[in-house]
Computed example of a mutant assay.
Amino acid sequence: MPKANVNSNHSAIWHKTVVYGIVSVMLLPILATLVYSLSSSWGATILPDGFTLDWYGQLLSDPRFLAAFGRSLLICSASLALSAILVIPAIFVVFYYFPKLDKLMNLLILLPFAVPPVVSSVGLLQLYADSAWPIVGTPWILIGTYFTIALPFMYRAIANSFSAIHLNDLMDAAHLLGASTFQAFWLIVLPNLKKGLLASLFLSFSFLLGEFVFANLLVGTRYETLQIYLYNMRQTSGHFTSALVMTYFLFVFLLTWLASRFSAKPAAISE
């Protein structure tokens, strides 16, 4: 065997060893939490005394958990629906009519990350505390805030889809066949954005579901979401809390996996 091939094989084995080692270290806390959530009791011994699903049963039968989970789903869904309704037409206008504005938009969408969440929350509290619209402590302020958080994820993913489908060519072909701009956008452009849109929605949903700072400061226990429920239950049984963490983790993992599956498939041009 040539020496170059031997060195290449050794290098590949070393790279795989490093990668697998890092992945194993990252998975250890998750596996430990999973085992603890399934154990009936785990004290001074190396292994648990027994395994049970009672903690998951208590969690899934807790009306407070179900209500908090439902509130989180409602807030995230409403925020992403608002984002999709406003962002998709805005990106279409930028890419079709004003393509030079894309660079400016890329800078503007980074603004939500430039201001720390605590600073933004304090500013929102001061702004709406004495407002004629008493939205502090209500889900409405969370929907508006989550909209700004999801905006960068939505814009970048959907903008990439617009770049991939050759928007101008599609619109020109649709106009030659007699379609109006609205018809071309609704019947041709939107179907070609489906995969990018779904990927951005799943990714944004998984991110918003774990948001805690805004939810805690702006609404707190007045509108208990999943993260606030997790924070409030931290003093209960560690097994119960571990079951809650693993349930949340598995749900977010499912959303992230769906986002990666949709983003990995190239968008096909509608015929």
Results as ranks from 00 to 15, higher is better:
6 V>N: 14
7 N>G: 13
7 N>A: 14
9 N>T: 11
22 I>K: 12
25 V>N: 12
26 M>H: 06
28 L>N: 12
30 I>S: 13
32 A>P: 01
33 T>R: 07
34 L>M: 15
39 S>R: 11
45 T>H: 09
49 D>L: 10
51 F>K: 12
51 F>G: 12
61 S>F: 13
62 D>S: 13
66 L>M: 15
67 A>M: 11
68 A>S: 14
72 S>Y: 07
75 I>T: 09
82 L>A: 14
85 I>D: 05
87 V>T: 11
87 V>Q: 04
88 I>Q: 05
89 P>D: 09
89 P>M: 08
93 V>S: 11
95 F>T: 08
96 Y>D: 07
101 L>V: 08
105 M>Q: 02
105 M>P: 00
105 M>L: 12
109 I>N: 02
110 L>G: 03
119 V>E: 03
125 L>T: 00
126 Q>S: 07
132 A>R: 06
133 W>K: 02
136 V>F: 07
138 T>K: 10
141 I>H: 05
143 I>Y: 05
143 I>L: 03
147 F>N: 06
147 F>S: 07
150 A>R: 00
150 A>V: 04
151 L>T: 03
153 F>T: 12
153 F>S: 02
154 M>R: 00
156 R>T: 08
157 A>L: 05
157 A>H: 12
164 A>Y: 14
164 A>G: 15
164 A>L: 13
169 D>F: 09
172 D>I: 12
173 A>R: 10
174 A>T: 08
178 G>K: 09
181 T>Y: 05
184 A>W: 04
184 A>D: 03
185 F>I: 05
190 L>Q: 06
201 L>D: 00
203 L>S: 08
214 F>E: 03
217 L>T: 06
219 V>K: 08
221 T>R: 13
226 L>G: 07
229 Y>A: 04
231 Y>V: 05
236 T>A: 11
249 F>L: 15
255 L>V: 05
262 F>T: 00
268 A>E: 13
